[in-house]
């Protein structure tokens, strides 16, 4: 465990709880893509199946359980409890266009052709693009609530911090996982445009709105 990874994990945790709290406090999930949340739930469920087969540490297991539970809770709030506030007209990204190619790629490019490993690979690839429905929704409406921007910033920062973690681990531990690194780069690149808008607008107290 190094500082980049710890701060990355905490940033990831913060992002999920900022979103949950936003929905819970405002009793509304307006502006949030339910499709991205379903994809994230799928990401955590397929990646953390090793909870049942392999124990690493209390920290590791606890975080996995929290990530699965909190994301499933977000999906529940969006699609059941506060369904009336869900902005489905603007959440029109076709997730099968992500899930099917990513599933195919996981079968073709993986470290080991075993069920658990293929699901892990699927999860890593899917995570890298899971935010696209949310970004698509923002581009359709042309704006995002400030709290949603904070959520996205924390969520994007997490994988960027993991990239620093992988550089650190490569030099100091000889650790290198090509699949995770490539997917992590793709994931971080997808946030670049948003990061720019966040830094130039939201940090200066302005609402995130896209130029018409």
């Amino acid at each position: 465990m190094n500082i980049f990874r710890l701060v990355g994990d905490l940033s990831h945790l913060l992002a999920i709880f900022v979103l949950l709290l936003k929905i819970w406090k405002s009793r509304s999930c307006a502006g949030v893509s339910g499709k991205s949340q379903i994809l994230f739930a799928l990401v955590f469920i397929t990646r953390y199946l090793d909870l049942f087969t392999n124990f690493i540490s209390v920290y590791n297991s606890l975080m996995k359980v929290i990530f699965i539970a909190s994301t499933v809770a977000t999906v529940y709030l969006m699609y059941i409890k506060f369904k009336a506030t869900y902005d489905s007209n603007h959440d029109t990204f076709r997730i099968e266009f992500l899930v099917v190619p990513v599933g195919g790629l996981a079968f073709l490019v993986n470290h080991d052709f075993t069920p658990l490993e293929i699901l892990w690979t699927f999860s890593i690839y899917l995570e890298s693009v899971a935010i696209l429905p949310q970004l698509f929704m923002i581009s359709k409406t042309g704006e995002a609530e400030t709290i949603t921007s904070h959520y996205l910033f924390a969520l994007g920062s997490y994988r960027a911090l993991y990239l620093l973690n992988w550089i650190y681990r490569y030099y100091f531990e000889g650790y290198f996982d090509l699949i995770a690194v490539v997917a992590g780069c793709v994931q971080t690149i997808l946030y670049c445009d948003f990061f720019y808008l966040y830094i130039t607008k939201v940090m200066w107290g302005k609402k995130l709105s896209l130029p018409a």
């Binding site: 470290h111 490993e117 699949i179």
Partner: peptide
């Protein structure tokens, strides 16, 4: 590549 048993990251 890493095998499932070595995965300590989240």
């Amino acid at each position: 590549g890493l095998k499932t048993k070595d995965k300590d990251e989240l």
